[in-house]
Amino acid sequence: MSVSNGAKLVVLSLLCAGIAGCGLPRSGPNKSEIFKGSVLKQGDAFIVQVNSRVTQATSVMPSYGFSNSFMNAGVIGSDMIAAGDKLSLTVYENVKDDPLLGNSGQRLSQLNELEVDGQGSIFIPYAGRIKAAGKSPEQLRNEIAAKLDSQTPDPQVIVQRVAGDGSTVTVAGEAASQGIFAIERPTRTLSAMLARAGGVKIEPGQAIIRVTRNGQTGKVWLQDLYQNPALDIALRPGDQIVVEKDSRSFTALGATGSQSRVPFDTQTLSAIEAIAIVGGLSTNIADPTGVFVFRNEPSEIANAVLGRNDLVGAQRMVYVLDLTQPTGMFEARDFLVRDGDTVYVTEAPYVQWQKSIGAITGTAGAATALTGQ
């Protein structure tokens, strides 16, 4: 029994209605749907077209640096003695038969690995306890010689500092070598100590150096440290140096080469660089007029962007980039992506049209099969 053309049309209409009711698959909202979320249309987000003024107002990046207590600390003497250090003491006496420190006939006496105690002192036979911490070997030599001079004629004293547990710093985190390192003549500054530890084992653009001293902490980008000698602070015994990996990231969604959470690999990251990292715009489906950056913006920045002063608390902001405009690529190059941003690229309108045609074509084929024609 054959089916009439009218029945075919009924079946086809029912299938098309089903497709329209279910909706076609897509990667996210289109441009018009995003704009419907604007506060101008009773939505809860401010939608802003990116221009040079907006770019300038939103160009805020993490500010790292050291406080005055770090910056004003001068380089310590390379041989400055500290509690925990070890000293080597050599005394030459101008007597042969009855030396004060050595055996008979022995003019040269050595005391090796004298440890400076927690109070910063050492004990020397016939000289007693002597404060050593905070002095140079030359200063300590003169003091010891003066104390021994009254007991042995014109003693000649040599004091050498052996790097011990006193003048040391700790290097940890993403440093190539981790451990406790002595502050010596070549390693009295932060960059020199990092070099002593073998540098960093992560990308330099992602490295942040944190230094903790006496309960205070300062941070600096590794690249800034190398580019700005003023940030190369002098070290102090007990400093804790930690190499950290930048934890910032953004999320890429929509018609891009890949959709994922992406870590920052440089201090600053522009919108055009963020798109490039995830493979650029998808050639077949992306709408270059609909590149959006979603962000919760602090009130002070939101007020500056919108030319207002009444907003309080974080504001939902949607920044719009149109890459087809004469300055669109420049705006995307200058607009900075920040930690936690969502970069979303909409699909071109014709993509949904193609999907609709494909769905209808498929539906028509299904209808033909059902009717047996």
Results as ranks from 00 to 15, higher is better:
D44I: 13
C16W: 10
G37D: 14
E300Q: 10
S167D: 12
A145N: 02
L108S: 04
P29N: 09
A145I: 10
K355V: 12
D310I: 11
G6W: 06
M80N: 04
Q267T: 09
R53F: 12
K131D: 08
A364C: 09
T189F: 10
A175R: 01
V54I: 12
G290Q: 07
M1N: 05
F294R: 02
A366N: 05
V54H: 00
L108V: 15
L87D: 07
S32F: 13
D44N: 14
K355H: 15
V262T: 12
K96M: 11
S4H: 04
A359N: 08
L269Y: 06
T168N: 11
P99M: 03
R333Y: 10
K36G: 09
N94L: 14
R53N: 07
A276K: 09
G84I: 13
Q354G: 03
F66G: 02
A7K: 01
A127L: 10
N296V: 10
G257W: 12
S109T: 15
V39I: 13
S104N: 07
A45S: 06
D97I: 11
D232T: 08
S32N: 09
P25D: 07
E113P: 00
L87S: 07
G307D: 05
G134D: 01
V200Y: 05
G179L: 09
D246P: 00
I122R: 00
W353G: 03
I124E: 07
T187W: 15
F66V: 09
A304V: 07
N142L: 15
E33K: 01
K147P: 02
S121A: 13
K201D: 07
N72Q: 12
F35L: 09
A366K: 06
V220C: 02
N51P: 01
T363K: 08
I183R: 09
D79G: 02
Q259V: 15
L108H: 02
I158K: 05
L101N: 00
A364L: 13
A82R: 14
L253Y: 06
A274D: 07
Y319C: 03
Q119N: 04
L148P: 00
Q49T: 15
F264M: 04
F46Y: 14
I47Y: 06
M317Q: 01
I301F: 03
